[in-house]
Every structure is written in C-alpha cells, then in structure tokens.
C-alpha cells in the first residue's frame, strides 16, 4: 500500500500547485493565451499576417471544452482500463500461488 500512499501524496501536491496560483493572482482569468501569442508577435512584427487558418474551429468555448473533456476522458479511460487489468492479473497470480 506504500505506492498508493505515495501516489495520493503526489496527486495532492499536483492539486496544490494548480490551486495556489488562483490565490496568488487574483484578477486574472487564466486564459489559455493563444491570443496573447498573436499580440506578442504583432508587437514584434506588426506586418505579419497569418497565412493559414484552421480548417475547422470549435464554434465556441462550450464545444471546445467538450472536445478537451473528451480528449482527457479517452486517455483516462484507457489508463483506468490498464490499471484494472493489471491489478486483476496480479491478483489472479497471487491466488494461483
């Protein structure tokens, strides 16, 4: 169970690292800042025009967050499956011995 305990501590640390900035920086929306890249580039080179734009863009924040959630869910689902599969395998081995 040491692994489990260690992992819980590590995950708590990650959560703290994510929450801490929310307290540190009060008046920010924590934007993804893709737009700020644009700003910085136009600041350095005002004549630059993006020469290509995405074929498709999520129509809004809601659809975008749906797709991001889907991406995370697909990955997490697979990892969850693997964890369960491996633990079951280990248990079976234990029972056989």
């Amino acid at each position: 169970m040491t692994i489990m305990r260690n992992n819980i501590i590590l995950l708590l640390l990650v959560a703290l690292l994510a929450v801490f900035p929310l307290y540190l920086v009060k008046d920010s929306e924590f934007g993804g800042a893709d737009g700020a890249a644009e700003e910085m580039i136009t600041e350095i080179n005002p004549e630059y025009e993006p020469w290509f734009s995405s074929f498709w863009e999520p129509p809004g924040g809601e659809t975008e967050s749906l797709l991001f959630a889907l991406q995370a869910a697909l990955g997490a689902g697979f990892i969850g499956y693997y964890v369960g599969y491996k633990r079951g395998q280990a248990k079976e081995k234990e029972n056989k011995e």
Binding site: P21, V25, F30, G32, Q71, A72, G75, I79
Partner: peptide
C-alpha cells in the same frame, strides 16, 4: 502493445489539462 497505449493515453490526458500557473495564465 497495451503499455504503448498507456504511454499515448498519458500524453492525451496530460495535454488536455490546462492548469493555471503563477503568471496568471494557463498552460
């Protein structure tokens, strides 16, 4: 093969997590 899937899935999850950072933006 399964472990390779885990490596891919891990990158999938993590790059979907936009986490707030100390500068007031997320990455």
């Amino acid at each position: 093969k399964l472990l390779l899937g885990v490596a891919g899935a891990f990158a999938f999850v993590l790059s979907a997590l936009k986490i707030p950072s100390v500068t007031g933006s997320s990455s």
